[in-house]
Computed example of a mutant assay.
Amino acid sequence: MATTATAISSAAAGQLHDDVYDRMKEVQEFEDSKLGVKGLVDSGISSIPRFFVHPNFKPDPNPGARPDVIPTIDLSGVDRQDARAKIAAQISGACRELGFFQVVNHGIPVEFLDRFVGAVRGFHEQPTEEKAKLYRREPGTGVSFFSNIDLFHSKAASWRDTLQMRLGPTLPELEEIPAICREEVVEWNQRAKQVGGLLMELLCEGLGVNSGALKERRFLESRVMVGHYYPYCPQPDLTVGIASHTDPGALTLLLQDQVGGLQVKFGEQWVDVVPVRGALVVNIGDLLQIMSNDEYKSVEHRVLANPTMEPRVSVAVFFNSDEQESVLGPIPELISPEKPAVYREFTKLDYMRRFFTKELDGRTLTNFYKL
């Protein structure tokens, strides 16, 4: 397979300045190889294939850590009423300002988080032949390995591979989950669901609505996990790890390692989300912005291509409704003569169909449903 990787890279690199370039042919060859980005790196390439080049990508020359923008919120004492009200207010403030924050003391041991990241890394660092068994884009068994969910829709691919898994309403059959991370995935599913449920309650309380409003709409039930692997990129100024985008669901819970690279759009500046060991990154998705009637913000974020020899690993859980025909729109309690509905109602099925037929291009679907 190394020969295939070299051929893909050489053919694309040789055409960087050619007028004739069959992008779809190169993309299909990459897809058929089932190598993933790591397979290209392992082949020893020194330049990235042309279809990974983002011609309009410009790294922010002065990114900022800005902890005042992306706060770290301590969940200690959340079971006490006085502390809970304060925590809900902090979370609400962060979501109204930017829609991103980190949480600590969430109840998941740091030792487990480290072990889980290691298990996901272990999956991606298996021999290509082993991972290729799971290389697919169809949901099928609920477990798949691929590179770039929007590979055939995007103008340029991004430098990452992904292990994707359905966590809820039910896990895949245990034998379908890769043995190298099976135990950790099962435990992570339970722990992420518990933290996600608590966050949903706090988010609702911050809006002044029934704390179970999101759970009643079954946003805790449909959970999808993605374990991203960002290997070393030989030309990180030409591509990205994940292109600028907003998340489609209600809520995203992210565990990242200490390598860094996640950035959030704040005004015209890209702000680094500095890794905090043991913390979970939380962000609002488009559907929660819609349901909150624009009280909470779903903002653009991206991941830079990894310039270091140490791979970056992150695991995200997307919380979404599992009712395809359910009608979504602003929560009724948030609509008033003073604050009329900003969005029309629509079905979850219509929304997800639109999301999965577009590229990750920074454009949010919220605009499509605005009144």
Rank of each mutant, 00 (worst) to 15 (best):
V273Q: 08
V273G: 10
V273R: 07
V273P: 05
V274M: 09
V274H: 02
P275C: 01
V276Y: 05
V276A: 03
R277T: 09
R277K: 15
R277V: 04
R277N: 01
R277P: 06
G278N: 10
G278H: 13
G278K: 10
G278C: 14
G278A: 13
A279D: 13
A279H: 04
A279E: 05
A279K: 01
A279Q: 07
A279N: 06
A279V: 05
L280P: 15
L280S: 14
L280W: 12
L280N: 13
L280H: 13
L280Q: 12
L280D: 11
L280G: 11
V281I: 15
V281S: 03
V281K: 02
V281P: 04
V282Q: 12
V282G: 11
V282A: 11
V282N: 15
V282D: 14
N283C: 01
N283W: 04
G285Q: 13
G285R: 08
G285E: 11
G285Y: 14
D286N: 07
D286G: 00
D286Y: 02
D286C: 07
D286I: 03
L287A: 03
L287M: 15
L287S: 03
L288G: 03
L288N: 07
Q289K: 11
Q289V: 06
Q289W: 04
Q289P: 13
I290Q: 12
I290H: 12
I290C: 00
I290S: 09
I290E: 13
M291I: 06
M291F: 04
M291Y: 15
S292L: 01
S292N: 04
S292V: 10
N293W: 08
N293C: 06
N293V: 01
N293F: 01
N293T: 00
D294A: 15
D294V: 15
D294W: 09
D294I: 15
E295F: 15
E295Y: 15
Y296V: 03
Y296T: 04
Y296F: 05
Y296L: 03
Y296R: 01
Y296E: 01
Y296I: 00
K297W: 01
K297E: 00
K297C: 05
K297M: 07
S298C: 00
S298W: 02
S298T: 02
V299G: 13
E300W: 02
E300P: 09
E300H: 05
E300Y: 00
E300N: 15
H301C: 02
H301Q: 10
H301W: 02
H301G: 07
R302V: 02
R302S: 10
R302W: 11
R302D: 12
V303R: 04
V303C: 06
V303F: 07
V303G: 06
V303S: 06
V303W: 01
V303M: 04
L304V: 09
L304T: 11
L304I: 06
L304E: 08
L304H: 07
A305K: 09
A305W: 03
A305H: 04
N306W: 10
N306M: 08
N306F: 05
N306E: 03
N306G: 02
P307K: 07
P307F: 10
P307Y: 10
T308L: 08
T308G: 12
T308D: 15
T308V: 09
M309N: 10
M309W: 06
M309C: 04
M309Q: 12
M309F: 05
M309E: 12
M309D: 11
M309P: 05
M309L: 12
